[in-house]
Simulated assay, not measured.
Amino acid sequence: MSATAYAPRHEDHVPIVPREHLDFGLDGDIPRYWMDNDAFKTRFFDAMSTLFPQGEKFFITSVREFRDDVKDPQLQKEVRDFTRQEAQHSMVHRQFNDRLAAQGVDIDYINRALEQHFFERLPRFTSRYQRLAATAALEHLTAMMCTCFFERRELLETSDPRVRAMYAWHAIEEVEHKAVAYDVLTKVAKVSYFRRVLSMMIVSIGFPLTVASIMNHMFKVDGFGFTERLKLWAKGLWWFYKPGGLFPPTLGYYFAYYKPRFHPWKVKEMPSYGKWLETYEATGDAIAAGNALHAAGR
Rank of each mutant, 00 (worst) to 15 (best):
L246Q: 07
L246A: 05
R229F: 11
G245S: 02
Y253E: 12
P248D: 12
R229N: 12
L246H: 00
L246K: 02
G245C: 10
L251Q: 15
L246T: 01
Y253L: 05
K231W: 10
G225A: 10
L251M: 12
G244D: 03
P249Y: 00
G245H: 02
L246V: 05
L251I: 15
F247C: 03
A234H: 10
P249M: 01
W238T: 00
T227H: 06
R229Q: 15
F240I: 14
E228Y: 04
T250N: 03
L246G: 02
G252V: 04
W233A: 03
G245D: 09
W238D: 07
R229M: 14
L230M: 15
A234E: 13
G244Y: 01
L237P: 03
A234R: 15
K242T: 03
T227E: 11
G245T: 01
G236K: 01
G236S: 06
Y241D: 04
W238Y: 11
K231N: 05
F240E: 11
W233H: 09
L232M: 13
A234I: 14
T227G: 12
K242V: 03
T227P: 02
L237D: 04
L230T: 12
F240G: 06
E228L: 05
G244T: 07
G245R: 02
P249I: 00
K235Q: 13
F240A: 10
A234M: 12
W233C: 04
G225M: 06
K242C: 07
W233Q: 07
G245V: 00
G236E: 00
G236D: 04
R229P: 12
Y254G: 05
W239T: 08
Y241A: 12
W239I: 05
T250H: 07
K231A: 12
R229Y: 09
P248T: 08
G245N: 01
K242Y: 01
L230F: 09
R229G: 11
G236F: 01
G252Q: 05
W239L: 06
K231L: 06
K235A: 10
L232S: 10
G244V: 04
A234T: 14
Y253D: 09
F247G: 00
G252K: 03
K235G: 11
L237E: 03
P243F: 07
P243Y: 10
T250F: 07
Y254L: 14
T227I: 09
R229T: 11
E228K: 10
Y241T: 08
L246C: 01
L237M: 15
L232A: 07
L237T: 14
